[in-house]
């Protein structure tokens, strides 16, 4: 469904992605592992077509259509949603407004405010709070809920477990796994190997802007050692 081919991305003169190639099939949960500074966020931003980084060569095929040359809102219109690093909620908007800014509350198709609140009852309790008045876990729930409101077929999640308490991380893993089961494709950037293994069907290891290892979760369950070697864990 999503095919990233030989992508080269730059921040100014800094060459960050050196020919990254990977793919995500429909309904597949794919984890992207790698240490800090290896280009994981750069890849997510490249796919979303955000202003930085600049993609100089390569291709980003979504259902056969080239995404390069589109603006971020056009990418989102093709049902690719972003749960960005650091959540990036809107401090001036209430929880409900985060969800209704895209769709009127009266729309009953696809993801609705009620469905998001059903999935995250905590958010329903906090519906009139503003984005910056929530706890870390609630913020992440809202960031996920907001992304779902575009009725995505693929969600790009950039380190959703970052900075969360262990119990919250588990809750999030359940949510991601359940979303994956509904047929939603997820490309998950994750530093925590065990979180990634808990939800992913397939894993990639990114190193200095290149995929150096690809493995299915089933294979990792049989033998962890090759993956560990690529992650620099011995």
């Amino acid at each position: 469904m999503l095919e990233v081919k030989n992508l080269h991305s730059f921040y100014g003169d800094a060459h960050v992605l050196h020919g990254t190639t990977l793919h995500v099939k429909p309904g597949e949960v794919v984890a992207l592992l790698g240490r800090n500074g290896m280009g994981k966020t750069t890849l997510i931003r490249s796919i979303m077509r955000l202003a930085q980084p600049q993609v100089k060569t390569g291709s980003l095929l979504w259902k056969g259509e080239e995404l390069l040359g589109l603006s971020p809102h056009e990418v989102a219109k093709r049902r690719i949603a972003l749960v960005p690093q650091g959540r990036r909620l809107f401090p001036s908007l209430s929880v409900t407004e985060h969800l209704t800014m895209l769709k009127a509350a009266s729309v009953k198709e696809g993801w609705t405010v009620d469905r998001v609140f059903e999935m995250f009852p905590r958010l329903a309790e906090r519906r009139s709070h503003r984005g910056n008045q929530l706890s870390g876990g609630e913020r992440q729930m809202l960031a996920v809920g907001r992304a779902l409101m575009i009725d995505p077929e693929l969600v790009l999640m950039d380190e959703p477990s970052e900075g969360l308490a262990p119990v919250m991380v588990q809750h999030l893993e359940t949510i991601i796994a359940n979303l994956g089961k509904t047929g939603l494709g997820i490309l998950l950037v994750e530093q925590n190997l065990y979180s990634a293994l808990a939800v992913a069907d397939r894993l990639y290891v990114l190193e200095t802007g290149k995929v150096v290892h690809e493995v299915s979760a089933a294979e990792v369950r049989n033998d962890q050692s090759p993956l560990m070697r690529f992650l620099g864990v011995h």
Binding site: M48, L50, A51, S71, P72, H73, V75, A76, K77, A81, L82, P84, R88, F90, P91, S92, L93, E97, T100, M101, L102, A104, G131, R146, A147, M149, I150
Partner: peptide, 24 residues
């Protein structure tokens, strides 16, 4: 209004509004 919410969200983080499918 929804336009108002979009304007306020845009003041906070225009790029994120764009990434949600709004032509900012």
């Amino acid at each position: 209004t929804r336009l108002g919410a979009l304007i306020r969200a845009g003041v906070d983080d225009a790029e994120m509004v764009e990434a949600m499918g709004i032509n900012i």
